[in-house]
């Protein structure tokens, strides 16, 4: 969708939410759901940062690490891409304690989401690094940079710009995936919705609100990432990049 349609949809979603929250039949639900949305946002934010870190580390390890490290990175990537997020979540939640590692549900939630997204992200980072033309490596060698210097100063800055759009998709997937943490008792937006639903049985009302809230957050994320993408490519042309 074009940027303008996205903004249009966002305005529509926020408008609907604002209107609903003035109506009597929705009024009681709003505070509870917004409270849950706050948890959803917090988990999304922390897991996004961690996922990005995991992705960069895993991609660099996979591309440039010593052989055993390279293998370790591959195992991590294949394992978390190859299994289902829900299975990973439940494994950390139910199985890990049996190995004597009891983590708080919130930690488990953040860890599962970030490890999972980080594995997908590692492939994004790798693809972006490999998409930087080989001439950039050669020019770096010609001015006698080491591989590390070339990677840090020349290749990664260019790769970062290339990876903004796929990371936008990953962050949206991450946001959507946070709904699963309700299944391990984290009181996120989905958890609150299910709770309200079981008490009031006003399914249509509650879930309409919840869908609108998720839609709003998703669209805002999309707009932020599009903005970043635009700024980065304009930065290449005009302003400063770093």
């Amino acid at each position: 969708m074009g940027a303008r349609s996205i903004i249009g949809m966002l305005v529509g979603a926020i408008g609907l939410l604002a209107w609903f929250s003035t109506l009597e039949r929705f009024r009681a639900f709003m505070p509870v759901l917004l409270h849950g949305a706050e948890t959803t946002l917090r988990i999304t934010a922390i897991a996004s940062v961690l996922a990005f870190a995991f992705a960069i580390i895993a991609a660099l390890a996979r591309l440039y690490g010593l052989l055993p490290i390279r293998w370790l990175a591959r195992v991590y990537i294949e394992m978390f891409r190859g299994t289902s997020l829900l299975v990973q979540l439940f494994w950390l939640y139910f199985v890990l304690p049996e190995f004597g590692m009891s983590l708080a549900p919130f930690t488990v939630a953040v860890l599962a989401l970030s490890l999972n997204t980080g594995a997908y992200g590692a492939e994004v980072v790798r693809a972006a690094i490999e998409a930087v033309p080989s001439g950039q490596w050669e020019a770096s060698t010609a001015v006698n940079m080491t591989r590390t210097q070339a990677l840090r100063r020349i290749i990664l800055p260019q790769a970062l710009i290339l990876m903004i759009p796929p990371w936008g998709n990953l962050f949206i997937e991450l946001l959507k995936a946070t709904a699963l943490v309700s299944l391990i008792t984290i009181p996120d937006l989905t958890f609150r919705a299910l709770e309200l639903n079981s008490i009031t049985l006003k399914t249509i009302d509650i879930f309409t609100l919840v869908l609108l809230i998720y839609l709003t957050i998703s669209l805002m994320l999309t707009i932020i990432m599009r903005g970043l993408e635009g700024a980065a490519s304009r930065g290449l042309a005009r302003g400063r990049v770093h």
Binding site: Q136, A139, A142, Q158, L236, H242
Partner: peptide, 9 residues
């Protein structure tokens, strides 16, 4: 180089 290979950023 033939293709300049300047650092675009």
């Amino acid at each position: 180089f033939q293709q300049f290979n300047l650092f675009p950023h």
